[in-house]
């Protein structure tokens, strides 16, 4: 019965449990949650405050604007370039979402249901493409887009967005389909379905929450994507909102208040999407953890 620990001063069981009891108490948990929420909200709040100043007033170091003004918003919203950018972003995000869903749902299903030669390697390959820091792919991406003549065009940006988000969505869809018992597809096939019908009539309707989650996430991710869009667009006609906001950063000065106002306006649609669809996002992302 003698263990190697004998003779050492060990913290007693009661003391260790007491420590965990404190850590798990509602008060401590709430404190941590409040802290986390503040961590997320404070920069946004700061940005909103900045957007209420004038560009010059930003440099007088007050947190609260002395004379709050909506002039920055006015300046952003009357510009044609802003509305064009919103339109571009809508086109990019919608097209990307549709394409990613069309590709990732069948792919995720195939990875969840079928064993074929090289299936594991292929799946790891899909995930592997997301392991590179995107910045490392910027140069080849630029070269390829230049070669295809897609610089300064919406298809060029959409291609990049699909490349960026497809692997993640394949992964999410695969996990979602894996949470749907394959007995159901097999039963459907015995009942008279072809493999494709079993997918369409049984697995797909059951995966609807997952599909919704993937669609929402893809939309949000491609809406806010900045780096790849910045690389291929210098032109207003194909510029998405994430890049347009950046136009307030000049060579010699930064128009902070305008930048802040434009950012606040740019995140409004995403906030709406999250508020309306959070149910799907949560259920979609946690599906793999639930059994039946």
């Amino acid at each position: 019965m003698r263990s190697a620990d004998n003779g050492h001063e060990r913290i007693s069981y009661e003391k260790r449990q007491a420590f965990w009891d404190v850590l798990e108490s509602p008060k401590v948990i709430h404190l941590i949650l409040v802290f986390s929420v503040l961590l997320v909200l404070i920069p946004i709040f700061w940005e909103v405050l900045t957007s209420l100043k004038t560009n010059d007033a930003v440099y007088s170091l007050n947190y609260i604007p002395r004379d709050p003004t909506l002039s920055s918003y006015y300046q952003v919203l009357i510009g044609e370039r802003y509305w064009k950018a919103v339109f571009n972003s809508l086109v990019i995000s919608t097209t990307t979402t549709i394409a990613v869903i069309i590709l990732s749902v069948p792919a995720g299903y195939a990875f969840s249901r079928y064993r074929f030669r090289g299936d594991n390697i292929l799946f790891i390959g899909v995930l592997f493409s997301r392991l590179f820091p995107p910045i490392g792919l910027i140069v080849p991406y630029y070269r390829i887009m230049a070669w295809l003549g897609l610089l300064n065009s919406l298809p060029g940006i959409i291609t990049a967005q699909i490349y960026l988000w497809l692997p993640l969505m394949i992964y999410i869809m695969r996990n979602f389909f894996m949470s749907i018992p394959s007995d159901l597809d097999e039963s459907a096939r015995v009942d008279g379905c072809t493999r494709l019908q079993a997918f369409r009539k049984i697995a797909l309707p059951l995966a609807a929450p997952g599909v919704a989650a993937c669609a929402i996430l893809t939309f949000l991710y491609s809406w806010r994507e900045f780096l790849f869009s910045l690389i291929v667009t210098t032109d207003l006609k194909s510029m998405p909102i994430s890049v347009a906001v950046y136009q307030f950063v000049g060579d010699v000065s930064v128009q902070w208040a305008s930048l802040a106002a434009a950012s606040v306006v740019a995140i409004l649609p995403t906030i709406l999407v999250v508020v309306f669809f959070q149910r799907y996002i949560v259920s979609g992302l946690t599906a793999g953890a639930l059994k039946e």
Partner: peptide, 20 residues
């Protein structure tokens, strides 16, 4: 042949009822 072409019906251990 595919299961659907065999004139069979099957009852699964977990019943495999379509939840939707």
């Amino acid at each position: 042949l595919d299961p659907r072409e065999r004139g069979i019906a099957m009852v699964f251990q977990n019943y495999a009822l379509y939840p939707h």
